[in-house]
Structures are given as structure tokens and as C-alpha cells.
Simulated assay, not measured.
Amino acid sequence: MSVQTSPAAPAVASAPAEPTLLKLDGVSRWYGNVVAVNDISMELGPGVTGLLGPNGAGKTTLLHMMAGFLAPSRGTVTVGGAPSWRNPDVYRHLGLVSEREAVHTFLTAYEFVLASARLHKLARPEEAARRAIELVEMTDAQDRRIGTYSKGMRQRTRVAAALVHDPRVLLLDEPFNGMDPRQRMHMMDLLHSLGAAGRTILFSSHILEEVEQLSGTIQVIVAGRLAASGDFRTIRRLMTNRPHVFAIQSTDDRALAVALMGLPSVTGVELDRAGLVVRASDYGSFTRELPKIALSSGIRVRRLLPSDESLESVFSYLVEA
């Protein structure tokens, strides 16, 4: 059986030693009587962070304030300690790929990325443009007009234009739109490399699987407010109002089910062909008590998996709450 792997992402230069932080302090934005973003504070350092939220939650408004396109109605947004609003110098350190497509279809990819390099007044714009195009695997098609491209190719061209000046902070709104599975895997590898090299990357996506594969760290926006921040597995374990669900297989599932029913932390046990499904009110207590119960009963636990710690579960719980 052959195994296919994603193409290796090109090497990425290391960022400066000092981290450039993206910081929001008590940020709100309203349009008349409509509150789009409500009192959000967050601080992001090097690495990749996913921005999640239902449609209309305020994700795009938040990204536009970070990029300096919108002024906060209240609070401050800074990039590397400098305000993003009305501060053109911030674009020396920041790259943006907006959700809305804005490309000149009569240009080739090389011409489009080269124009971005020249706007940034780079010393060698031609070299920078070719390097950015290579990063997103568009070299073979760089001399074709953008109007002939697929949606995924146009998206990769836009990413190249955002990367051409080697920004320390990268904001991406739905960056994988239109990409096929191979292109998506390569882009994930590239963003991983950039984050590992010290860049601060924030990307939004409505596909939870993409966020889970690319980043365990999330910022969740619900109805304009920051509902949760951090590693999504840690967030799940802090949700004490929801029982935790575990899938367990052992050498004697029936006997283990009887023993577990006596634990104060266990609220329910189901036995099926695949093993046990256990609901526990306290994650820490249950995971400490299970080995003791198994040992005292002479039962060997072969498999123990939290079955509701996926990002999808965490996101669903937060939105419902």
C-alpha cells in the first residue's frame, strides 16, 4: 500500500528574535445601534492561532481593525506596540489576505506580486516576488493572466502578495477558499513553517477540521464577544457544566462498567460492542480514579479516549452557551 504525503514547504527565514505582538485592549466596534465587536481583549505572540465564530459573529470586523482598515469605536489595537489605525508604517510588518477577492485579472501572478513588492519599496522587488511565488507553488503558472486561474490559484497568488515583504504578522481571512486537498496541505505546511520561524499568524476558517489540523490554539468569537481563548482541549476540560465523555476498551468491559458506576465522578456508563461509553462530571477526578479501579479489579485498560474533545465539540458547546 502506498502512502501519499503532502509536499514539503519551502524553507522560511527566521523572524527577528523579539516577538511582534498583536494586541487588542477592550476593543469594541459598532455601526449605529449594531454592536459588531464588544469589549474584546487578546494578545497574540509567535505561532499560528485560529479565529472561530458563527457567521456574523464579528470575525471579519475584528481582522479589519487589526489590519488598520477600521477604527475601533472604543479600545486600542496595536501591532508591535504601534496602533494599527491611521499608521501606514504598520504594513511594513503586517500582511493581510482578506476574504473578499480583489485581484486585477488582466495581470499575471508575477506582475501582481511584483506590484505588491514595489508598493513596499523593497530593495530587490523582482527577487522578492519570485521568492514569494515559489513559496506558494505558483512558479509554473506565474506568467499566465490571473483571469485564467482557478479560485485556488488566485487565492495562492493573493497569499504570495501578502508574504512578499516577509511580514512578522500575517492575518488571513478564510485562506483555504477554493484550494484542492493537495494545495490545502501545502499551505498548512507553509503556515506551520512560518509560525515555527517566529511569525504571528491569525487565520479564520469556517471549516473546523482545518483549524484543528493547523492550530490547537483558538480565539472563539460569539455574538461579538470573546467566548474562549487558548488550547481547545484545555478549554473543553474547563467546561465543568458539561459531562466529559470517554470511550474505553478493557479486558473485561462489563466488570469495569459495574466498578465505575460506584465512582462519584461518573454520571453514566453504556456498554456496546466497541466497549464502554462513560460520562464523567469531573475530568481530573475520573482520570485519576480509573487506573486505581482497574488495578484493584484486575482489569487492564486497553484504550481510553476522550470522545468529545474535538474542536467541533468545543465550538458547538461554546455557541450553544
Rank of each mutant, 00 (worst) to 15 (best):
Ile299Glu: 09
Met261Arg: 15
Thr267Gly: 14
Leu271Tyr: 01
Arg279Val: 00
Met261Val: 11
Gly298Thr: 09
Val269Tyr: 07
Ser281Arg: 01
Lys292Trp: 13
Val258Gln: 13
Leu276Phe: 09
Val277Tyr: 08
Leu276Lys: 02
Ala294Asp: 04
Arg254Val: 05
Arg254Tyr: 09
Val245Gln: 12
Gly268Tyr: 06
Ala259Val: 03
Ser296Ile: 10
Glu270Thr: 14
Thr267Asn: 06
Ala259Lys: 00
Ile248Glu: 02
Ser281Tyr: 00
Arg254Ser: 05
Tyr283Ala: 12
Val278Asn: 10
Glu289Phe: 00
Thr287Trp: 11
Leu260Ser: 02
Val278Glu: 04
Arg279Leu: 00
Met261Asp: 15
Leu256Gly: 09
Arg273His: 15
Gly298Ala: 06
Ser296Gly: 07
Asp282Gly: 12
Val269Pro: 07
Ala257Gln: 00
Val277Asp: 04
Val278Cys: 09
Ile248Gly: 02
Asp252Lys: 07
Tyr283Asp: 07
Pro264Met: 11
Ile293Phe: 09
Met261Leu: 15
Ser285Tyr: 01
Ser285Leu: 13
Pro243Ser: 08
Arg279Lys: 14
Gln249Gly: 12
Met261Asn: 15
Ala294Thr: 09
Asp282Lys: 09
Asp282Pro: 06
Ala255Asn: 01
Arg254Phe: 03
Ser285Thr: 13
Ser296Trp: 01
Gly284Arg: 15
Asp253Val: 08
Asp282Leu: 04
Leu260Asn: 05
Pro243Asp: 11
Asp272Phe: 03
Ala257Tyr: 07
Thr267Ser: 15
Thr251Ala: 05
Thr267Arg: 11
Leu290His: 05
Leu290Glu: 04
Leu263Arg: 01
Ala274His: 04
Gly262Lys: 08
Ala280Phe: 07
Ile248Tyr: 11
Leu290Asn: 06
Ala257Ile: 04
Pro243Tyr: 05
Leu256Lys: 11
Ser265Ile: 08
Arg279Phe: 03
Thr267Ile: 13
Met261Tyr: 00
Ala255Glu: 09
Thr251Tyr: 07
Phe286Pro: 03
Lys292Asn: 13
Val258Leu: 13
Ala257His: 02
Asp282Cys: 12
Pro264Gln: 10
Met261Pro: 05
Gly262Tyr: 10
Thr287Lys: 11
Asp253Ser: 03
Thr267His: 06
Asp252Tyr: 02
